[in-house]
Simulated assay, not measured.
Amino acid sequence: MKKLTPLKAIRAKCVDCCGDNRKEVAACPVENCPLWIFRAGKRPKEDYDKSPLKTIRAYCLQCGELNSRDDVRECMVESCPLHEHRSGRTGRKLSKAEKERRTAILKEARKAKA
């Protein structure tokens, strides 16, 4: 399977869930699905303080039988587009400046939401 970005992986999972019908993804009625807000494969315009990776992690935790980290870690469904992102991490190291920048953005989004 081709390596996908987290947003493209979410889009692929949504298309798969809708029976490979891309039009159905736009009309998806399952608003309580963690992936719903990213279903178009783009970041939402409104403030949303979770990253696509953390959203994938939340989805994978729901998908597991016991809703546990062990279920997610041991997931064997490699055909799932979300599989490589299931840990909620990219595997790459961020610089200290990048971590601080992202933390500041999340704090601002949370303040605006409150």
Rank of each mutant, 00 (worst) to 15 (best):
H85S: 03
D47Q: 06
C33Y: 01
R22C: 00
S87C: 00
L53I: 05
K54N: 07
E84A: 14
N21W: 02
A26N: 06
A109N: 12
L106M: 11
K93Q: 13
L82D: 03
L4W: 04
H83A: 01
S87A: 09
I105P: 03
K96E: 08
D47S: 09
E74C: 07
P34L: 00
S51L: 06
C63T: 09
I105G: 07
N67F: 11
K45Y: 05
D16G: 07
E65P: 03
R11C: 03
C63S: 09
G64E: 02
A109G: 02
E100L: 12
E65L: 11
Q62A: 01
I10F: 11
C17E: 14
T5A: 08
G41M: 05
K42C: 05
E74Q: 13
L61C: 03
A9R: 00
T90P: 00
R69H: 14
K54L: 15
K2T: 11
L82K: 00
A109C: 12
R101D: 13
T5Q: 06
C33F: 01
K8G: 03
E74N: 13
C18V: 07
V72K: 06
K23E: 13
R43P: 01
R39K: 01
V25K: 03
T55E: 03
R73G: 02
A58C: 11
P29C: 07
I105D: 03
Y48K: 02
C14G: 00
K42D: 07
C28W: 08
V15R: 11
A12D: 04
S95F: 09
K111A: 14
T103D: 08
K99R: 04
R69K: 15
Y48H: 14
M76W: 01
K8E: 10
L53H: 03
L106D: 08
H85T: 00
P52R: 01
R101H: 08
S51A: 10
L7G: 12
R22G: 10
R73N: 09
R69E: 12
K93H: 08
I10G: 07
R102T: 13
L66S: 12
E98R: 12
K13E: 02
G88L: 02
R11K: 15
K96R: 10
L7N: 01
P34C: 00
K2C: 04
E78F: 00
Q62C: 00
L7V: 01
G91K: 06
F38A: 10
K50D: 07
W36L: 12
D49T: 14
G64V: 06
R110A: 12
C28V: 15
R89K: 15
M76A: 09
A114K: 15
I10K: 00
K54R: 13
E74P: 02
G41I: 01
L35S: 06
R43S: 11
A104C: 10
R73C: 09
C17A: 14
